[in-house]
Amino acid sequence: MAAGAALCALAISGCAPEPTPGSQNSDPLPSATVPAPNGGSIDETVAPVAPGETLEAKLGDTAELEGGVNVTVSEVEQLDVKAVTPGEIAGPAVALTLTVENDSDESVDLSTAMVSVTGSKDSFGQPTTSEPYSPFLGSVEPGKSISGIYVFRLPAEERDSLQVTVEYVAGAPIALFTGDV
């Protein structure tokens, strides 16, 4: 009976011994409200931005977008990549060299540029940070151009015909490039 009572007491207390003075801290973990990096809160709603007009071009050609921004997929390289970060997968891929030329009168921020790839069987390329990944950073000044490299995992049998979309900022015109690799 005494053993059964002891087991029952352990089950009720959750089998965790009480902390003793000088042992691990029994205080709960500290908690604090941390503000969002750019302000705002979870209670705010961001207004949707309508997608821009889509302008089609062939791989290698230049899409002259409204507002003086010209985008070119200047090179497509087929390669095999190695996994770099957790969750990435090694294997067949394409590396796209994109060039943006700014013919407008104002600086164009490319830090939020969105690039995607669709293969010949309508599967989406998986973005990867494997070499030679080197995305756009910062802005391109008026009269200047900048290049970036985006890498996507894509099965070898789907790399012959690609669709590449480039949207340099939300709501801007979208360049849709198509062609055989």
Score class of each variant (00 low, 15 high):
2 A>D: 15
3 A>D: 14
4 G>T: 03
8 C>F: 11
11 A>Y: 14
14 G>M: 03
14 G>P: 03
17 P>R: 02
21 P>D: 14
21 P>I: 08
21 P>V: 11
24 Q>S: 14
26 S>I: 09
26 S>K: 00
26 S>W: 07
27 D>R: 15
28 P>I: 13
30 P>F: 14
31 S>P: 00
32 A>S: 05
34 V>E: 03
35 P>A: 13
35 P>G: 01
35 P>W: 09
36 A>T: 13
36 A>R: 10
38 N>F: 05
39 G>V: 13
41 S>I: 01
43 D>W: 15
44 E>N: 12
46 V>D: 10
47 A>I: 02
48 P>G: 06
53 E>W: 02
54 T>L: 05
59 L>M: 10
60 G>T: 05
62 T>L: 02
62 T>V: 11
76 V>D: 14
78 Q>C: 01
78 Q>L: 10
80 D>W: 00
85 T>G: 05
87 G>V: 09
87 G>W: 01
88 E>P: 02
94 V>P: 03
94 V>S: 07
96 L>A: 07
99 T>A: 04
101 E>G: 05
101 E>M: 00
103 D>M: 01
104 S>Y: 12
108 V>P: 00
111 S>C: 04
111 S>Y: 10
113 A>F: 00
114 M>E: 09
116 S>T: 15
118 T>L: 08
118 T>M: 14
119 G>L: 03
121 K>G: 10
122 D>Q: 13
123 S>E: 12
123 S>F: 07
124 F>S: 11
125 G>S: 04
127 P>D: 04
135 P>L: 04
137 L>M: 12
144 K>Q: 12
146 I>V: 11
147 S>T: 12
148 G>N: 12
155 P>K: 06
155 P>N: 13
158 E>P: 01
160 D>A: 15
163 Q>G: 02
164 V>H: 05
170 A>S: 10
170 A>F: 15
174 I>A: 07
175 A>E: 05
177 F>I: 03
179 G>P: 07
179 G>Y: 04
181 V>L: 06
